[in-house]
């Protein structure tokens, strides 16, 4: 019976095409579509802030260099991970991540909460040559980051594209994107008021790479690393979210 029906199906190429599409389509549809409609999928978090243009540039450098190939940004709901890295990652924390960088491999440690754990100077030295700081490290040296000036020219277009895919950047943020990026990594107070007004008083504004004269790619990447796990304080505040269902 089933095999009899199949005997007919395999004589008709278009029916076979249709059958393959329908049969293969079900799984993805059932698992993915509801993630966009069920509200509990992503916790609501009014405190969650967006990346500043400098942090977004740093994130793009992180992507460009393929950091995600060796570092995850997703702390699982396992006791040892919470003890090692901090509260487990919430969906809300990557809601503005286009694309997400949860990663799949930890050749190096998880970075979801690396922000504020080390000094800017440590990060700069470490990225420039990891073995200067940790002799046994097998991380590649990213010495060119200190040499490359940050390209902040197209940031308005970048923020526009992000807005189009759903990140609520305001038109003011978009217009000032390039200036805000430079202001965050220079010590000029005149430029900084607008940045604080748009992204909040807690925004890290400093010379990340120790080179006051230029804004380098190192500035951007360190600014990004320092904000990881710090875009919202929700995971640290709400104890019920972090102790509830840990598995050994």
């Amino acid at each position: 019976m089933i095999f009899g029906a199949h005997y007919k199906l395999e004589k008709n190429s278009l029916a076979l095409v249709l059958a393959i599409i329908v049969v293969s389509g079900i799984g993805g549809f059932v698992e993915i579509a509801p993630l966009f409609t069920i509200d509990e999928t992503v916790e609501s978090d009014p405190d969650m802030r967006m990346y500043t243009p400098l942090e977004l540039s740093g994130r793009n450098i992180y992507i460009r260099e393929g950091c995600y190939a060796c570092h995850s940004q997703m702390i699982r709901t396992l006791k040892d991970e919470v003890d090692r890295y901090g509260p487990y990652s919430l969906a809300a924390e990557s809601q503005y991540d286009h694309p997400m960088l949860w990663g799949s491999k930890r050749t190096g440690p998880d970075l979801a909460r690396v922000g504020d754990k080390y000094s800017d100077q440590w990060h700069t030295q470490h990225l420039n040559n990891p073995r200067d700081v940790i002799p046994e490290s097998i991380m590649p040296a990213y010495s060119w980051l200190l040499r490359n000036t940050l390209n902040a020219a197209n940031l308005t277009d970048h923020l526009t594209a992000m807005k189009r895919v759903g990140v609520p950047y305001t038109s003011e943020m978009i217009t000032n994107a390039s200036n805000d990026a430079l202001a965050q990594a220079t010590a000029d107070p005149a430029l900084q008021d607008g940045l604080f007004a748009r992204y909040g008083q807690d925004t890290n504004v400093r010379i990340f790479d120790g080179k006051p004269d230029t804004v380098t790619e190192m500035d951007a990447l360190v600014a990004y690393l320092q904000i990881l796990g710090q875009l919202t304080q929700l995971p640290y505040k709400d104890a019920s979210l972090t102790d509830a269902t840990l598995e050994e």
Binding site: L35, V42, P99, M100, V165
Partner: peptide, 14 residues
């Protein structure tokens, strides 16, 4: 450069 249409958990699943 482009930005993925999906973010975070939906992007991870996709």
């Amino acid at each position: 450069k482009s930005y993925s249409l999906f973010a975070g958990v939906q992007d991870a699943m996709t």
